Each structure stands twice: as C-alpha cells, then as structure tokens.
Amino acid sequence: MKKSEMQESVIIFGACGRIGKVLVEAFSKKENTWVVAVDISHERLADIELVRGEKHVLDISSAESITQLFEYLMNEGRVPKYAVNTSYPIGRNYGRDFFEVEYDDFCDNISKHMGAYFVVMQQCARFATTHDVEFSLVNLSSVYGVIAPRLDVYNGTDMTMPIEYAAIKSGIQHMQQFVTSYTKGTQFRVNSISPGGIFDNQPSEFLQHYREYSRTKGMLDAEDLVGMVLCLLSPASRFICGQNIVIDDGFSIGGRHRKPT
C-alpha cells in the first residue's frame, strides 16, 4: 500500500475499563484517526461503540498476539503510531491486607500486571524501530507509584491499598525509563500518567478523607485524564520521553485542607 493511502491508528489496550472507554470515545471523535479497541473480554468489547475503528480480543501478555495485531494493521493500511495501555491484569488473591499477602500471590500479581506492561512496551518499541516510524506510547501508572499510600484515607472503610499495586505502578515508571534509554536514536517514545483516585461510587467517608488532601475536587473522573493523554500522543510533546505526569488535583502534595480561622 502506498504511503499516501496509509491511515494513522491509535491502539487502546484495556479499552473496556473505566479509563479505556473514555479514551475510546475521545479518540473516536477525532477526524482521520482509526481507533483500535483491544481487550481480553469478548462480552465487554461488544458494548464498545466506535465511529471509526475496530475491536480486537487480545491477551497483552502474548508478544506474538501484539505482533500479529501490528502486522494486520500495517497490511490494512492503518499504521499504528499511538497506543495507550490502560489494562489492569490481576492475579490470585489480589488486594489482600499487607500481612495476609502470600509470596506466590504477590509474585503472580507482579507477573501478570507489570509483566504485561513490559510486553506491550517491548513490542511497541520493536515495531517502531523495525519499521522506523514515529510511535508514542502512554502507560497508566498511579500516584501510588510516586508516593507512599495515604492509608488514613481508608479509615472507617473496608478498603485498602494493595502493596502489589504500589510495586507494579512504580515499576512501570522505571521500566519506561529503561526503554527510553535503550531506544535512544529511534522515533519511539514512551511516557506515563499517574492519576490520583478515580471516582467509582466509593464510600462517602473515604471520599471526604480523600478530598481533604486535594485542592478542590478530590477523586477525579476518567474524563479528567483525556487532555494529558492527547497531549502526550501529539507532536506538541515530541520531546517528552520517559516521563511520568501526575494528575491528582494536588493529592500527592503535602498538606490537608486548612480549617477556617
């Protein structure tokens, strides 16, 4: 296929999650953009609506499956130039209290989640360098990959912050720094965003505790992340590489709401 006939595409890994769905909708509204919605769930993908795009059931821990997806898109004239990884693979007994986490379960969760992010980064970088094309990947990390958890916000609830989560999300940031160093001199770049908490009808007591550490809003909506993702994928950020951008309404900054004097 001639270069003039090629169409740029953006791949959303984890397209059926809260953040993935919002990104699919946002990119579907952009002209001249072909959206490739990827998830491991047949049933959940059936609910995704695309204006311009296609759906693929895929296990992101399989390097071969990702390679096949890239080859298919190239053959169809839809060259992948952008990708966002919002997937959230979990293993056995994820989310237990710290003292209840067993070694095998810890390793299983690290392997499934951080391992899958490694495979996506590796295969996106391999594709970009092999074909010598510009490619921008955005990973989903977390504010708890940047700071220690504020455990007091969970007081009075059954909620907790899994240690596996902190290890995984900080690991993603360090992996992308390695990949950025390894791929210098190529047109591939990778960055991440680290959101604060995303609203999902959590207990009101937790929401109040959380908001006291924030500037004005507290828990974010998935839509609050779209602008930065669009920026990191665009030419406007062409020299931002290997970086992590925190989006948390000031939650990670020290201090709580001051009482009126």
Rank of each mutant, 00 (worst) to 15 (best):
D224L: 04
I247H: 07
I11V: 15
N139D: 09
I12Y: 06
K217M: 06
S181E: 11
K29V: 13
S111C: 10
P149Y: 02
Q68M: 11
M1C: 10
P80Y: 00
V138K: 02
T261V: 14
D200L: 01
D249K: 00
Y88A: 12
H42S: 08
E5L: 15
T130I: 11
I19P: 10
R211M: 02
L225C: 09
R238F: 09
L140G: 05
R150V: 15
G255S: 10
V35W: 02
K3Y: 08
V146T: 05
E43M: 05
V57N: 03
G197R: 02
M1F: 09
E8R: 05
I110A: 06
Q123H: 09
S111R: 13
F206Y: 13
V101Q: 10
D47L: 12
I193F: 05
G17W: 01
G91V: 13
Y72W: 08
E49P: 05
A26S: 14
R52L: 03
I48C: 10
R52Q: 11
T183W: 04
E64G: 04
H209N: 10
N32M: 09
V101H: 02
V101M: 12
D248P: 01
E49W: 07
P260L: 12
E76L: 04
E25C: 02
K184I: 12
G17F: 00
E8M: 07
S234R: 01
G53E: 02
T67K: 13
V24I: 09
A148V: 10
M74H: 07
Y144C: 00
S252I: 01
G171Q: 11
N244H: 04
V38Y: 03
V153G: 00
V133I: 15
G115F: 07
S41V: 12
D97K: 13
S252G: 08
S111F: 15
D248H: 04
T130M: 11
Y144I: 03
F70A: 02
P195N: 06
H131K: 15
S204Y: 04
G115P: 10
H131P: 15
S61N: 06
V101E: 13
I110D: 03
S204H: 07
F127L: 10
H209K: 04
V36Q: 03
S204V: 15
R78G: 02
S87K: 05
C107T: 14
V119Q: 06
